[in-house]
């Protein structure tokens, strides 16, 4: 590795070649994830209404639960941003605090979502009920699975932060996981609109 002079403003995660390359690579991976979620959205929109005579979203969606989930996830994105802010200011404590709150909000989101899914299944709308519900559970479920993996990943990083503190490597990992977290938030906004709002208005 060549020795490069970094301006004092360069964040730690950008101060290594590995850092820069991995961050760029992750942005491109997010591009692929956009293609993935776009396909799931297209599938969902094509299968809207195909409830095979069974229950439909207009009967089962409830605004309150969805609003809570949205509030939790959007706030967690904000707290994630705060965490990065503290990280950039070299505050390990601040990073821990706000990343911890982010995880708690994320877990809250998951909790409400699992409750929502169980409720639908009890009402007779499961993955196996009809094409519409298959599409719903796979689209929203894939997002939820991504959130779950994000939480697990961030926990692993927190352990490494405890072990090693703020280094170019650990900050790189935190930054990349934050990109992932914000991405999931953006996807949720599309889900909120195209699935829940559209489904309740339809």
């Amino acid at each position: 590795m060549e020795s490069v002079e970094y301006s004092p403003n360069t964040p730690l995660e950008y101060q290594s070649e590995t850092g820069r390359l991995n961050i760029l690579g992750f942005w491109i991976f997010l591009g692929a994830e956009i293609a993935l979620f776009s396909t799931l959205f297209a599938t969902y929109l094509v299968l809207v209404g195909r409830t095979a005579g069974g229950p439909g979203p207009e009967e089962l969606f409830e605004l309150s639960g969805v609003l809570i989930e949205t509030f939790l996830l959007l706030t967690s994105s904000f707290t994630c941003g705060l965490a990065i802010h503290y990280m950039r200011n070299h505050s390990l404590k601040g990073l821990f605090l706000w990343l911890g709150i982010t995880l708690a909000l994320g877990l809250g989101f998951l909790g409400f979502e699992i409750y929502e899914f169980v409720h639908y299944i009890h009402e007779g709308a499961a993955l196996t009920t009809s094409a519409y519900w298959s599409a719903f559970f796979v689209l929203v479920g894939t997002h939820g699975a991504h959130v779950t993996m994000g939480i697990a990943w961030i926990i692993l990083i927190l352990i490494q932060l405890k072990q090693r503190g703020l280094t170019p490597d650990t900050t790189r990992k935190v930054f990349i996981s934050s990109l992932y977290w914000h991405f999931l938030d953006v996807v949720w906004i599309f889900i909120f609109t195209a699935v829940y709002l559209y489904g309740m208005v339809m």
């Binding site: 599938t43 094509v46 299968l47 195909r50 409830t51 095979a52 069974g54 993955l127 196996t128 009920t129 009809s130 094409a131 519409y132 519900w133 298959s134 599409a135 559970f137 796979v138």
Partner: peptide, 18 residues
Amino acid sequence: TFDRLFGSHFFTMMDGGM
């Protein structure tokens, strides 16, 4: 895979698949 293994209905002839 979900259709074949878990009974979903994305592409089935029954229950609204396409």
